[in-house]
Design a protein around this nucleic acid. Structure first.
Lengths: 165, 165
DNA sequence: GCAAGTATCTCGCTGAGCGAGGTAATAATC
DNA sequence: GATTATTACCTCGCTCAGCGAGATACTTGC
């Protein structure tokens, strides 16, 4: 499990990855590994709570939107998760059956359905992200403000780079 | 889409996120968003190439192992992806049917099957990660060495934090 | 009021992944 | 060196997430 003990600084300096790879490549692999680990952690948590990885991702989207003060609808959620309308309906059915969200008809445009996250969903999200958040914030405290800004800028850049095709 | 335009420094100093959230929380959300985007990019790429998200993740694992000089077996792959043995067999069947990997009996321990990635798999992996790698490396070039080290250390920390339960 | 457009849902289907159990090969015990 | 346990992988039957196609309900423009 701890097989990723890189040479550290013992190898050729300035070329931490495999020979022949451009410098900075190790960071790309690291980033990839982070996403894989977070995915697996999400899948484990989801399974433990009787839901699927997609369900958890959907909850996160809904809580995100709620926090940002944006209204959530099936259409938006499906688009954000890369699901078609049928899959989105099934997803929302599952979440509603579990009592995590509610469907509410929009009174202005009565074709639309608004999705409201239940208190239970908030609690569930917190119980998943809580420990991770604590660890991340502790970790973050070990960095200088300038370093934190660099990390922030880097992640923003990667986010934008991943959004493009 | 660009709704995440935070106040910057205009609000209460040292409290960049929503009110009531601990400082550094914005970075946690950012990290989450990065993983979501990378996941979606992977799913899109997978779909475009006639395979599933899991298939792509499996390929990445296999290529990783090959790069690290480690032998790959169904058991290890399944464990790494969180699949049980039946699912792992089906996964390997798919990849083998597509000509992306080969099964080879280990001559030392003839219970074991070694998984070899085909040249096509390497090319496929490159075509997916290539653009992303280029952008990331370009992005990375805009950081001081000290900042790069901070990013590296942060990602390592998150990776380890996500690995624990 | 009617046609066109939009948001969501329903139906039938495919196939990824699971649980249970089977088959070789190796290791341990006598 | 036969017997039992363990390891590594595979097969079978099933469930259910997600897809494509089409239906339904509502809004908007003429």
């Amino acid at each position: 499990m701890a097989k990723r003990q890189e040479p550290g600084g013992a190898g050729a300096p300035g070329e931490a990855g495999s020979p022949g790879e451009p410098a900075g490549m190790d960071l790309v692999h690291l980033l990839r590994e982070v996403t894989l680990r977070l995915d697996l952690a999400g899948a484990r948590f989801a399974g433990r709570n009787g839901l699927h990885p997609t369900d958890l991702r959907a909850l996160i989207c809904l809580l995100d939107a709620a926090r940002a003060g944006t209204e959530s609808t099936p259409g938006r959620l499906g688009e954000r998760l890369g699901l078609n309308s049928a899959g989105t309906t099934a997803l929302i059915d599952r979440l509603e059956r579990l009592g995590l969200i509610r469907r509410v008809r929009d009174t202005r445009d009565r074709r639309r359905v608004l999705l409201e996250a239940d208190e239970r969903a908030v609690a569930l999200g917190r119980s998943f992200f809580g420990p991770l958040i604590d660890r991340t914030i502790d970790l973050l405290a070990t960095f200088e403000p300038g370093e934190q800004a660099a990390i922030r800028r880097f992640l923003s850049g990667v986010r934008d780079a991943a959004g493009e095709d």
